[in-house]
């Protein structure tokens, strides 16, 4: 009896049981680990360009290459219209936004696969890893976005009929929206890959199809108005169109479907966090 009393007097820092709470996130602990977060962001960022022969230039090469390929294949060969916007600018806008989503989604989705060496040896709040991935990709987006701005100014000076407008102020919200959506779907995938190993390949393939279901290489305006709602079912479709509308003045903005997309991203991040925190507790037993 006396022993039980004594045990209860101690101010325990950690209580480890099999109980799984629905959303077990310790924000205070995450804040305490901010130095680790910075370190991981820096490490991943540096590792990205150290692995490529081109060094830091890689951040520019990637969107440029995508833009070039799209311009040749979809612009010059397939001759898909681009809403009257210069081809290069049109594809670059699409690819910059799409890459932000797809890279974040892929990186976050691989969390348990890439970090399992670390996860099985030391404890730290696991969420730090996907958060670092998101921050890292925001920085990458920032760099590629500057490139896009450079091209935009060039075409503006050259007198193209482009109409950047005040909706640009909405960009931070659009970024948070895409970031949450990518992180949410990524977290869901990361949790599922600990159960299904083959899911990773499926995801890679699915991502490619997903891009073609998103108005990245074509404008929404080429879709028949009566069928447009099918396109809007894809939460990323309104996002890409809105981005183009802000900076280039062309694009179909549907406030209803955009709002639905925002709500979806909030639901997905919640579901992702729930699944992730459930998985992290004992996933090392199953690797």
């Amino acid at each position: 009896m006396s022993e039980i009393e004594r045990t209860d007097e101690v101010a325990w820092d950690h209580v480890i049981t099999s109980k799984k709470r629905v959303l077990d996130i310790n924000v205070k602990e995450l804040v305490k680990y901010r130095d680790l977060l910075f370190l991981l962001v820096r490490r991943d960022f540096v590792a990205q360009y150290k692995q490529s022969v081109l060094g830091p230039l890689w951040f520019f090469i990637q969107p440029l290459l995508n833009t070039l390929v799209f311009t040749v294949i979809f612009g010059n060969i397939a001759k898909i219209p681009t809403d009257g916007i210069p081809n290069m600018l049109f594809y670059m806008a699409g690819t910059v936004v799409w890459s932000f989503f797809s890279l974040t989604f892929t990186n976050v989705g691989m969390t348990f696969a890439t970090a399992n060496g670390l996860f099985s040896k030391v404890y730290f709040p696991r969420l730090i890893v996907p958060i670092a991935n998101v921050i890292n990709n925001v920085i990458t987006f920032g760099i590629q976005f500057l490139l896009f701005l450079g091209f935009l100014f060039y075409f503006l000076l050259a007198g193209s009929a482009l109409h950047p407008n005040l909706w640009i102020l909405f960009l931070p919200i659009l970024l948070i929206h895409v970031g949450l959506f990518a992180m949410g779907t990524g977290l869901i995938v990361s949790a599922l890959t600990t159960k299904y190993r083959d899911l990773r390949f499926l995801v890679g393939f699915g991502l490619q199809l997903w891009m073609y279901a998103t108005p990245v290489v074509y404008p929404a305006s080429i879709v028949k108005p009566s069928l447009l709602w099918v396109l809007w079912m894809n939460p990323l479709a309104p996002v890409v169109e809105f981005f183009r509308f802000m900076f280039l003045g062309k694009g179909i903005v549907n406030p209803l479907f955009y709002s639905i997309s925002v709500v979806e991203s909030l639901l997905l991040i919640l579901l992702g966090l729930v699944l992730f925190t459930r998985t992290e507790k004992d996933f090392i037993d199953r690797i």
Binding site: T7, A11, V15, T17, D282, I284
Partner: peptide, 28 residues
Amino acid sequence: ILSRLTTPTRGSVKIKGRVASLLEVGTG
């Protein structure tokens, strides 16, 4: 379990203080 890498199936572990662990070769 003490290092919080996995959870017990039954029972509980309570800890006061910061834990540093070095588990076998190849620490984190």
